[in-house]
Structures are given as structure tokens and as C-alpha cells.
Computed example of a mutant assay.
Amino acid sequence: MSDTRLPHEKGFHISWDQIHRDSRALAWRLDGHGPDDGAWRAIVAITRGGMAPAMIIARELDVRVIDTISVKSYNHQAQMDAKVLKAPDADMMGDGTGILVIDDLVDSGKTLELVRELYPNAHFATVYAKPKGRPMVDTFITEVSQDTWIFFPWDMALQYVEPYRGTD
């Protein structure tokens, strides 16, 4: 039997509770691994997906300096060439030493490849990773197959669903 599902139909649905647990697990894995006696100088969230994990990780690791880099690599569910729309503070970043760059997912690796070119000594961490992008990430929590579409809670809305066997 052939698999006739569309790519987005092989979905991995993440709840707010799950992203919180997985982000805390990532913080635990990163704790004590920064270059400044185990601490990180700053966190840079890759917008938009990296913002929620970065907030949780910053809290867990007591990092107060937080910035963002805005990279566009998707147009809805279609991938495109990655480009920087907004860069973090250049004086803070330097070559990236002591900076923890956080994203929700590494997929093809194009976004992280672009950011790594800008900040080669930063540490790149994602909550989820797909095989094609794994070489671009230093630390991650969960690997999913390349053909899995991850549905993050900030992309979803709760709604009523009819039961399978009717409404009686």
C-alpha cells in the first residue's frame, strides 16, 4: 500500500504544555555549557518560532540579555531562500561567542546556515530537528522525520470536532 498522504498530513501536533516541557529540557541540556563559567552572555531568538522557546530558556538559565534576528524562510508552508529582515545588536553579537541562538525547529537548515555565517561562534539550539538540518544545530531535544509537518500551538486554534460515531 502506498502512502498517499500530503506532506502536511503527517503531522506532529505540539501543545503549549509540550513546547514548555521541551524548551525546559533544552535549557537543562544547555545549562552550564556557556563559555563564561558555564553561563551565556545573551540569547538571540530566531523570529518568530524561536521566541517562545527563547523566553522559557532565558527564564530557566537566568539570561537577561535577549535579542531577536528575523529570518524569513517560509511563505505559509512553502520554503524559500532565507533572508535576514532584522539583525540583533551588532556590538552585543560580535562573532557570536557566548551567544545562544534559539529556534523552534531546524528543517532544511537554511535559516541556521545563514545565521551561522553571520555569527560563526554562537551556539545554535533548537527544540526540534529534522535530518536535513541536524548538521546546522549544536543542541536539540527531539528529532522528527523530514516529511513530518510540526503544528506549533501558536499556529493552531482550538475548535469543536464532531465525534466519530455521531452526536447522540
Rank of each mutant, 00 (worst) to 15 (best):
T97S: 15
D107K: 02
R59T: 10
S108Y: 08
D91C: 01
Y128A: 01
I102Q: 04
G98P: 04
L30N: 06
A82T: 00
H76K: 13
G11F: 07
T68S: 06
Q159D: 09
R24M: 13
Q77A: 13
T68G: 09
L118G: 06
S15Y: 12
D168Y: 07
V44E: 10
G34L: 05
Y128S: 07
P163L: 08
I141D: 05
M156I: 08
A42R: 03
M55T: 15
P135A: 11
D17M: 01
R24C: 14
D81I: 11
V65L: 01
F124R: 03
A78L: 15
W149P: 07
G50E: 07
P120F: 07
D36F: 09
R41T: 05
R29E: 12
D103W: 00
I66S: 01
R59L: 05
I56Y: 01
Y164R: 08
L105M: 13
P153S: 11
P88T: 03
R21A: 07
K10Y: 06
H8L: 15
P153Y: 11
M156C: 14
A54T: 05
S70C: 10
G98Q: 01
W149K: 14
T68A: 11
Q79V: 08
W28Q: 14
V101E: 01
R21W: 09
Q77W: 11
L30Y: 09
Q159G: 14
D91A: 10
Y74F: 15
A87K: 09
T126I: 08
T111Y: 01
G96K: 08
F140R: 02
H123L: 07
T142N: 04
P53G: 13
E117S: 11
I43Y: 06
F12A: 10
W28N: 11
V65A: 00
R134D: 06
R59A: 12
K83T: 15
A78F: 10
D104R: 00
R165P: 03
R134E: 10
